[in-house]
Design a binder for these strands. Structure first.
Length: 593
RNA sequence: GGCCCCGUAGUUCAAUGGAUAGAAUAGAAGUUUCCUAAACUUUAGAUGUAGGUUCGAUUCCUGCCGGGGCUACCA
C-alpha cells in the first residue's frame, strides 16, 4: 500500500468536510518536504485558496487539524506559508517497510493488459555499431524494462536496415578487393569485416572522383559518373531483380554481419523479441497510399506523384509516392506501422531513434492519425541527442567514429584498473574478477549514458564514468555490495531481520524509509515520461543515503540488539530496491566487490 | 529563409508552475587513518538576454543572442 494514498484520501475527505468540495485525485500533488522542515510529505495550498475561500496559511492549518484529529496516520504537522508539511506516524513507516520486505517484486505494477512495442537499435548492415548506437540500445532496453515494471506487455523489436545502395557499396568493394577473405581467415568480427570494405569503397570512390575532376568534370558530375558508383547502382538493381549471384553474396555477407551484431548485443546485455528486416518491408505501404487517396488524406499531382498536405500542422507537404510509382522511405514506414500492429495489437508503439529524425516521425505519426489508425495516438518517438566525446565530434567520413565493441572493451579494462587497485577482491578467482570488471565497466557505461535526459545532447567522458566515487554506477554497485555484506553477516550471526513494531525510528532510518516510499511513484513517472534518467538519479540517491544511514547505525550496533535487526531490515530493503532500480537500467548489481 | 531541440556553479548533470535553484567533480579550510571507501565536516561558486502571464517562473508566452538539427522524388 502506497503511503500517498492515505494522504490523498485524507485530503479529499478534509475538503469534503471543511469546504463541501469534491477534489479529484489528480489535482492533489504531494511533494517531498524540504529537509530543513519537519515532515516527509508536503501539500501546497496556494492553488486551493479559492476553494476554501481562506488564505493559504489558514487553509493549511485547517487541513492539518482535520487530518490530525480525524485520521490515525498523522503524528504532527506544521505550516510554513502555504505549505502544509506532514509528519507521519511511525506505524505508517513500519507498515511500509514491512510491505517492501514482504513483496517479491516491490515497485512493479500488476499487468495492466496493455501491449506496447519498442523498436530500437536499427543498425545498418554495412558497418559495426558505434557510440551513438550504445545510447540508443541502452535507452531502448531500459525503457522496455521500465514499461514492463509498469505492467505493460512489451515486445522489443529491431528493424535492421539490410538493403540499399550503401549495402551494395560494401558488397562491391568486397567483390573487387576481398580476395575471398572471411571473418575466420581475417580473424575479425563479421560486422567489422564488412565495415572495412565500406571504408575501402569510399576510398576508391574518392580516387575515381578525383581522377574525373582532373579530366575536367565538375565534382558533381564526377560523383555521378564514377564507375564504382555506377556499378553499385547496377548491383542494387540486380539485387532487386533477385539476381542469384548478387543475392547469394548479400546473404553471405549478411550472415557475417549478424554474427558480429549478436556478439555485440550479448556484450551490451540487450535483446530483442523479433527482428524485422527492411529487405522484407521495403515494398510495404503502397496500399496505404491508395487508401490515403480514397480517404482524401493524400492528393495526386500532375506528374502522378502522391503527397500529403500537412501544412496545417506546420509540417508542409510531404511526398509519399514518386511519380514513377516507387516508394520513398516514409511509404515503407507507413506499411511497417500496420505490419507491427498485426504482430502485436498495441496501444503504444515506441520508436527509439535519434533526434535528427524528429521531423520524419512528426510527419509519419500525423499521417497515421489522419488515416484513422486505432493506435495513432499511441505512437511515440523517443528522441535522443547526439553523444559527444571530450576529444571532439564523431565523423564517420574522417574515421573518428568510436566503435561500440572497442569502447566496451576499453571500459572494462579501465574499470578493472580502478577496481583492482582497491585490493578488496584478492580472494576472487580470475574468472570472478573478470566477471566483476565486466559488470563494473559496462555498468559504468550504461549508467553514464542513461543518467542524462535523453533529448539532450550529451558529453560522454569515459574516465569520469568509471570513477569509484561520485555520480557513477560503480559507486551504486559498491553500495549494493556493502549492503549485501551486512545482510550476509547478519545471517551468520543469526540476527533476525524481522521488524519489531515497538521500535522507535532514528532520524536517519525514517529518512531512508522516506526515500524508499517514493520508489513506485518514481517508476510510474519514469514510464510516463520515458526517462531512465529519473531511475538513475533515484538509484544514486538511495546509494548516497546509505552512507548517512550506515554511519548513524554504527554507533548503536554493539549495545542495542533491536537496532541491529532494524538495520538489517532496512539494509535488506535498500539492497533490493537498489538492485531493482539498476535492473531497470539493465545494470547488474554485484553481491561482492 | 521556415520549423524543431538545447543554453543552469570552472566542468558534467538535476529540479510534475512552489519554499533559500539541488548533486557530482574540480577549488579552499579543517578532522581522521575506525567502518569493505582518501573517508568525513565546513566553505565558495550558476538559471544567456529583454519583456510578459501570476500569489509565485529554470519551467509557460514573445523578441533577441549563442549551439545543434531538420527543411531530398536518400535511407
Amino acid at each position: 500500500m502506497d503511503i500517498s494514498i492515505h494522504i490523498k484520501t485524507g485530503i479529499q475527505q478534509a475538503f469534503q468536510a471543511l469546504y463541501n468540495h469534491d477534489l479529484s485525485n489528480d489535482s492533489i500533488a504531494l511533494q517531498p518536504t524540504r529537509k530543513e522542515f519537519k515532515g516527509s510529505h508536503t501539500f501546497v495550498t496556494f492553488p486551493f485558496a479559492r476553494v476554501s475561500k481562506k488564505n493559504p496559511v489558514q487553509t493549511a492549518e485547517d487541513l492539518g487539524n482535520f487530518l490530525l484529529t480525524k485520521t490515525d496516520w498523522l503524528k504532527d504537522f506544521n505550516v510554513v506559508k502555504g505549505f502544509l508539511n506532514l509528519e507521519l506516524a511511525d506505524k505508517v513507516w513500519l507498515e511500509t517497510l514491512e510491505n517492501i520486505l514482504n513483496s517479491d517484486n516491490y515497485g512493479h505494477a500488476e499487468p495492466n493488459g496493455e501491449k506496447v512495442m519498442v523498436e530500437y537499435s536499427s543498425p545498418n548492415t554495412n558497418k559495426p555499431l558505434h557510440l551513438g548506437h550504445l545510447r540508443n540500445n541502452f535507452l531502448g532496453f531500459s525503457i522496455s524494462r521500465i514499461l514492463e515494471a509498469n505492467g505493460y506487455e512489451v515486445m522489443k523489436v529491431n528493424l535492421v536496415n539490410d538493403r540499399g545502395i550503401h549495402i551494395c557499396k560494401s558488397m562491391l568493394a568486397y567483390q573487387k578487393f576481398g580476395e575471398g577473405e572471411t571473418p575466420e581467415s581475417a580473424n575479425i568480427k563479421g560486422d567489422h569485416l564488412i565495415g572495412k570494405y565500406y571504408v575501402i569503397f569510399d576510398k576508391e570512390y574518392k580516387k575515381e572522383i578525383a581522377e574525373l575532376v582532373e579530366k575536367g568534370q565538375t565534382e558533381e558530375e564526377a560523383k555521378k559518373n564514377a564507375p564504382l558508383i555506377l556499378e553499385a547502382q547496377a548491383m542494387l538493381k540486380k539485387w532487386e531483380e533477385g539476381d542469384e549471384k548478387v543475392v547469394g553474396l548479400w546473404k553471405q555477407m549478411n550472415d557475417w554481419v549478424y554474427e558480429g551484431f549478436d556478439q555485440t548485443y550479448r556484450q551490451m546485455g540487450v535483446s530483442f523479441d523479433k527482428m524485422y528486416k527492411e529487405s522484407n518491408t521495403y515494398l510495404l505501404g503502397k496500399d496505404i497510399v491508395d487508401e490515403g487517396l480514397e480517404k482524401g488524406v493524400f492528393y495526386k499531382k500532375d506528374d502522378n506523384s502522391v503527397w500529403a498536405d500537412l501544412s496545417a500542422e506546420k509540417l508542409d507537404h510531404k511526398l509519399v509516392l514518386r511519380g514513377n510509382g516507387t516508394s520513398v522511405y516514409i511509404t515503407q514506414d507507413m506499411g511497417t506501422c500496420d505490419m507491427k500492429y498485426e504482430d502485436l495489437p498495441f496501444t503504444k508503439s515506441v520508436y527509439v531513434v535519434g533526434n535528427e529524425q524528429d521531423h520524419h516521425f512528426n510527419v509519419l505519426f500525423s499521417i497515421m492519425k489522419k488515416l484513422g489508425r486505432p493506435y495513432g495516438e499511441g505512437l511515440y518517438h523517443l528522441s535522443y541527442g547526439m553523444v559527444d566525446l571530450p576529444s571532439g565530434k564523431m565523423k564517420s567520413r574522417e574515421g573518428t567514429v568510436v566503435d561500440a565493441d572497442d569502447l566496451m572493451d576499453e571500459m572494462i579494462e579501465t574499470a578493472a584498473a580502478r577496481v583492482a587497485e582497491k585490493e578488496k577482491i584478492a580472494e576472487f578467482s580470475e574468472e570472478e574478477k573478470n566477471e566483476l570488471f565486466k559488470i563494473n565497466g559496462l555498468g559504468a557505461l550504461k549508467y553514464f549514458l542513461l543518467k542524462v535526459d535523453p533529448k539532450r545532447r550529451m558529453l560522454f567522458n569515459p574516465e569520469e564514468s568509471v570513477e569509484l566515487n561520485g555520480h557513477t554506477a560503480i559507486f551504486i554497485q559498491y553500495t549494493h555490495a556493502r549492503a549485501s555484506a551486512i545482510v550476509r553477516r547478519a545471517k551468520e550471526l543469526d540476527a533476525n531481520a524481522v521488524i519489531s513494531t515497538s521500535l522507535v525510528l532514528e532520524p536517519a532510518e525514517s529518512e531512508l524509509i522516506g526515500l524508499l516510499y517514493e520508489y513506485p511513484e518514481k517508476i510510474q513517472l519514469a514510464a510516463k515520461e520515458y526517462s531512465p534518467a529519473i531511475i538513475a538519479q533515484y538509484a544514486y540517491d538511495l546509494a548516497k543515503s546509505y552512507n548517512r544511514f550506515y554511519h548513524e547505525v554504527k554507533i548503536f550496533d554493539e549495545e542495542d540488539e533491536q537496532k541491529v535487526s532494524m538495520r538489517v531490515a532496512l539494509t535488506t530493503t535498500l539492497k533490493s530496491t537498489i538492485k531493482s532500480a539498476l535492473g531497470l537500467l539493465g545494470i547488474d548489481a554485484p553481491e561482492r566487490m
